[in-house]
Design a protein around this nucleic acid. Structure first.
Lengths: 118, 118
DNA sequence: CAGACGTGCAACCATATGGTTGTATAATAC
DNA sequence: GTATTATACAACCATATGGTTGCACGTCTG
């Protein structure tokens, strides 16, 4: 399991950008919770044009959050939970910066029981 | 600890939108790893105009990822790890949709040892 | 085979986005 | 008090973004 876990900055931009829309988050949730779906099946669920949903799916695909395969005239869309996990890992890393800092502060005060007034 | 963990859709849009830029992610990382910093201290680190960094900080503040307080003429910016955690929780929830589905599929096949060819 | 269905793509639109330069005001230092 | 520093805000710009309508082509069905 030595797959590249670190995404490039442009990849991260795309990833979070794709997540920054409610319809797209909903599409992801449906795909992860249910079966892979055709674009038109997805589109039926939203009060917008088919082409608009197509666009959303394209953004998700570009970001690696979904994949698309041809099944006859249909395009089957499936979710990619690994990509979500990559985003989550990045966020965890950010949080860990904070935790590391708090830990260092704790150790600093543990070493010098009489901290300066600074 | 019954704080509202669920953000609204517009809030989530803002949150992920804010994370969808490399400079902004870097600002967050610096603030979480180090001391709260003034806007000009932050700005010195990036090869762009001061006003551009100001804008980035404003986006982060709007998204709840940083907070700003006046300290004389300076504006001290500090990171907000709780907000990162909220984004992470949302992503975890998406992953759990997938995991729930896999679990149900496992149980389905455990119940019927002769799955249909479908 | 003809009609219906599913999709891809283009062009359009109003608005938003990362940047820029410029101006003004408040706070700080000497 | 004057000069410097830090910031807020405005206007601008090229590009991107969520939507729209329209057209065309491939696939499927009766």
């Amino acid at each position: 399991m030595v797959a590249r876990l670190s995404l490039t900055d442009p990849e991260l931009d795309q990833l979070f950008r794709a997540l920054a829309d409610g319809t797209r988050r909903d599409i992801i949730a449906r795909l992860l919770a249910g079966e892979p779906s055709s674009v038109s099946t997805l589109a039926a669920r939203y009060d917008m044009s088919f082409a608009a949903v197509q666009k959303h799916v394209a953004v998700l695909e570009e970001a690696g959050l979904v994949s698309k395969e041809a099944r006859g005239r249909e395009r089957l869309v499936r979710g990619n939970p690994e990509r979500i996990a990559q985003a989550r890992t990045l966020l965890l890393q950010l949080e860990q910066l904070w935790i590391s800092r708090l830990t260092q502060l704790d150790e600093l005060f543990a070493e010098s029981p009489t901290p300066s007034a600074d």
